[in-house]
Design a protein around this nucleic acid. Structure first.
Length: 488
RNA sequence: GGCCCGUUGGUCAAGUGGUUAAGACACCGCCCUUUCACGGCGGUAACGCGAGUUCAAUUCUCGCACGGGUCACCA
């Protein structure tokens, strides 16, 4: 019987979460859920220097907004707690001592000066920096004496000097390292606390993590992890290493220079689901040609074999396109709920929600685009009469003026003011005058909006603005044109 | 520098010892159309380089180049 799938996401609380991190969490979550397993959140906060106030809350809220729910974690508990690494510090040393006992680790009393000297020497001679094994073979007597003398010490992992270590990664395949290249890394620091690498292995084992999903920067320390598992006699997890998400061909996405944190994207008006959808596709590809997936669908189709080995560059236009697709698929109500704050930011007037939603929905790639599109509703912007000149529509200032003069009485007499009635009235006029649609409708839009690009055309704008406002803007257009033509 | 990994259009990527080398985004053109979008149709554009294996290599092997990662009492 196969073991239950348990994956974990183990971030350090150091600030906002960039999309590369989120993607790792997503993959871990998807893999767990696909196999009816558990997804665990563990906070690795042992570096007090780097810990940022409030960062844990950001982790919570980011995952929640992304729809990634954890089965076990600091706030929800579980049978393998505590889930905050700093609260687990007590037992690591005992584990390290077990390794000392078994001969896979040893006390090291080298002080910082000696280590620095060693490093300088190695640097000067061009050999790779590596612990020289000075304390590897101290006699039990020496160790006892040092301990009794109260000398500070660390515990180091005793790497094999010969042979090689091979492991299998689900993404990269079989990878081999020479043991002689492995450093006798520190397991327990002189303050008695575990190093990250050691705590990680022990925690993952204690929490029964079955699949370790993490960034490819851990690829080269994986042999050391495995040697640790072997030294303990523990079962090794399945490894899934993911290549980084890049800002461009040479720079990794980073909190410092990139703005692609999840929070930033939300602020720019991207939908959480669209972001999740996009990052799932960044470095992973589904079997078919469909690209739009809900989280549940992703769980269904996720497969580790689709993860690619090479780094992927984050492409905002692609995210934007996916976001636009999500927006177009929304119901009018749903769209309005999202759009309302953006609409209200520039439009205090009461408007026909359903009409405005329909007008904006196919023209909104992200919600922040909205204000710019509708900033003519409350007040007619300043505009110049050359907007009336449109070559393709065959309009100029003179014939626009004529047309507006024709439109005005018709609309003034229109009792029932709605899109249909306006449409009928306008097309009747078009027919009567024997003109192309654009000849009439282009001037109308310009007069109503003061812009040459608007969401929807003159008829929709008239319906949206209402009778009084529309009439008054048309009159204003007529006056503008009259005075402009007079001057020339 | 040592070690590990990677390299298909501008981007994400599928794929194979023999293919017209998918698809999406972006870009361009056309259609639709009262602008802009949406929608529809079409187009430009790719296997890093050099050897080798083979009847045949983008696919397998080696070398090179380029890129990434890693070499802490950080995580």
């Amino acid at each position: 019987m196969s073991k239950k799938v348990r994956t974990r996401f183990a971030p350090s609380p150091t600030g906002y979460m960039h999309v590369g991190n989120l993607r790792t969490a997503l993959y871990a979550y998807l893999l767990a859920k696909k196999n009816n397993g558990d997804f665990i959140l563990r906070i690795e906060d042992t570096d007090r220097e780097r810990t940022v106030e409030g960062a844990v809350d950001i982790i919570y809220s980011t995952l929640k907004k992304a729809g990634i729910h954890w089965d076990e974690g600091p706030d929800v508990g579980g049978n393998f707690g505590p889930y905050i690494q700093s609260e687990r510090m007590s037992f690591f040393k005992d584990y390290a001592l077990q390794l000392v006992e078994k001969g896979h680790a040893y006390y090291c009393f080298c002080n910082k000066e000696r280590l620095d000297e060693l490093k300088d020497l190695q640097k000067a001679s061009g050999t790779p920096p590596k612990y020289d094994g000075h304390c590897r073979n101290l006699s039990p007597e020496e160790i006892r004496q040092n301990l009794e003398a109260g000398l500070p010490y660390v515990i180091r992992q005793k790497m094999p000097r010969e042979g090689s270590t091979t492991f299998n990664d689900e993404v990269f395949g079989e990878i081999t390292f020479e043991n002689s290249d492995l450093d006798d890394q520190i397991l327990i620091k002189s303050d008695g606390m575990p190093t990250y690498n050691f705590a990680n292995v022990v925690d993952d084992h204690l929490m029964e993590i079955s699949h370790v999903i993490r960034g490819s920067e851990y690829l080269s320390s994986t042999p050391k992890y495995n040697l640790l598992y072997e030294a303990f006699g523990w079962e090794k997890p399945v490894y899934i290493h993911c290549s980084p998400v890049m800002k461009n061909a040479v720079e990794k996405l980073s909190k410092r220079n990139g703005d692609a944190t999840f929070e930033d994207l939300l602020e720019k008006g991207y939908l959480p689901q669209a972001i999740v959808n996009y990052i799932a596709l960044l470095g992973w590809s589904p079997k078919g040609e469909e690209e739009i997936f809900s989280l549940d669908e992703l769980i269904d189709i996720f497969d580790v074999s689709g993860i690619s080995k090479s780094p992927a560059i984050f492409d905002l236009p692609k995210l934007t396109a996916i976001n636009a697709k999500y927006i177009r698929n929304m119901s009018d109500e749903d769209f309005w709920n999202h759009a309302e704050p953006y609409v209200k930011s520039v439009c205090k007037k009461e408007v026909n929600k359903s009409l405005l939603s329909q007008m904006l929905k196919t023209r909104t790639e992200k919600f922040k685009d909205i204000p710019e599109q509708i900033n003519f509703i409350d007040n007619l912007p300043e505009y110049t009469c050359d907007l009336y000149i449109h070559k393709k529509m065959k309009t100029n200032e003179e014939n626009s003026l004529e047309v507006l003069r024709q439109i005005l009485p018709i609309l003034e007499q229109l009792e029932d003011w709605n899109q249909n009635s306006i449409h009928d009235a306008m097309f009747k006029l078009i027919e009567t005058l024997g003109l192309k649609n654009g000849r009439v409708l282009w001037p109308l839009r310009v007069a109503l909006s003061g812009k040459s690009f608007t969401p929807g055309g003159g008829i929709e704008l008239a319906a949206l603005l209402g009778k009084n406002e529309s009439i008054s803007r048309i009159k204003e257009g007529i006056e503008k044109l009259e005075s402009d033509l007079e001057q020339n």
